[in-house]
Nucleic acid binder design. Structure first.
Lengths: 210, 210
DNA sequence: TAGATTGTTAATCGATTAACAATC
DNA sequence: TAGATTGTTAATCGATTAACAATC
């Protein structure tokens, strides 16, 4: 394995991917780190450093081929593959994620939607039936589910995480406002802590008034 | 004004706030940086450094008073105040945010919910009527709205941001997958880029398999 | 008092930026 | 070829960790 890539670099990759897609849609053939810098807001130096963690995608005197770089970053991000996904918690947030077509387009295929509420079980979101959370473990095991999206209240989140872990999930996208405890080092967790994000905005709002 | 607080520190504050709330709910009276470290996962040294950016909240030989520290961090985050808020885009995500009681409890009062879709306009979410986006500018101006939450598709996000800016918004919580352009230095933006978060998970998923 | 633990300075580590030789 | 721009090393900057005197 090569040298460890820092999280700072990793979290910039999706932004490169997004801006390169825009350039591609505008039929741009090539771009220099300097011009990309002016668009994306990172320094040209940082862009070249970031990209060189993964390979020499550019060419001296020319810059980067937009289409090629977009594809390469997609591969680095694992977007050339499909991922079987389940969503646990079919409230507004779970439904919002289930309904967002962008995720499916990127290869995150939602195979199941689960809830504990009997009034929701059986309903359909798009062509996806809401299932009883009792069946989660079996479903994940039998359908090669790799990603579990936790959209439950915080009280249930750890319990659900435990079920997912037992059924050999590979990654958890956690929207509950808790930090999950996961023993297995191979399981990856990505948190979306909305309250923390809102509180950060609140801090900045008040900082400005000083 | 004191020395500039780094974003790294600021983004840890909500996490302190959350864990202190848990301790408070368990009736813990005091805590040392060392024990807090073992719970929250930052080093004790970092915790003391972080807190000392804002004041000497602790006491040698004793540690920190949980209730006092919780209140202090709440004040630093601006959670001792109320914020009039509007949500633009009443799809699943906008509704999810409108329905989440935690935000209201923290002082983020949702005063209006707007959409462009005639089939949604007039419907009620909790006791909040979905209004025509045409009336957004006037509403924000007349109701002292400080925070706008953008939950529209990416194509509309900049346009909505421009309306909000014209009506003297103070902060924008942006869920659309774009980087908004804001001239006014005093307006703060906090992005929740869900796709970037998911792609980061995807990267980590594949990194583990190498 | 003795022990515990902070606040704070100094040391270390890591990430970003600058510089420039290599080369297209 | 001359100009442009990368890949990469070195310098700088900033954040984290360690250490410890102050003090409750």
């Amino acid at each position: 394995m090569g040298k460890k890539i820092s999280m700072a670099v990793i979290r910039r990759l999706p932004k490169y991917h997004r801006y390169l897609k825009e350039l591609l849609d505008k039929d741009r053939k090539r771009i220099s780190s300097k011009e990309l810098s002016s668009i994306i807001g990172f320094t040209a130096s940082q862009i070249r450093q970031d990209l060189n963690n993964f390979g020499g995608f550019g060419q001296q005197g020319y810059g980067y081929n937009v289409e090629e770089l977009y594809a390469e970053i997609g591969k680095i991000l694992g977007l050339n593959m499909d991922y079987n996904t389940v969503i646990i918690g079919a409230g507004n947030l779970g439904q919002a994620i289930a309904n967002y077509s962008g995720f499916e387009k990127s290869g995150f295929n939602i195979k199941g939607l689960f809830d504990i509420n009997p009034r929701l079980i059986g309903l359909k979101i798009r062509d996806l039936e809401i299932r009883d959370i009792e069946n989660l473990e079996k479903f994940v095991l039998e359908n090669d589910i790799e990603i579990g999206v936790i959209c439950t209240p915080k009280e249930k989140a750890q319990e659900i995480a435990d079920v997912l872990i037992r059924s050999n999930i590979k990654g958890i996208w956690n929207f509950a406002p808790v930090d999950l405890t996961i023993e297995d080092e191979d399981i990856v967790i990505e948190n979306v802590h909305l309250t923390e994000s809102l509180f950060t905005l609140s801090y900045l709002l008040n900082e400005k008034n000083k």
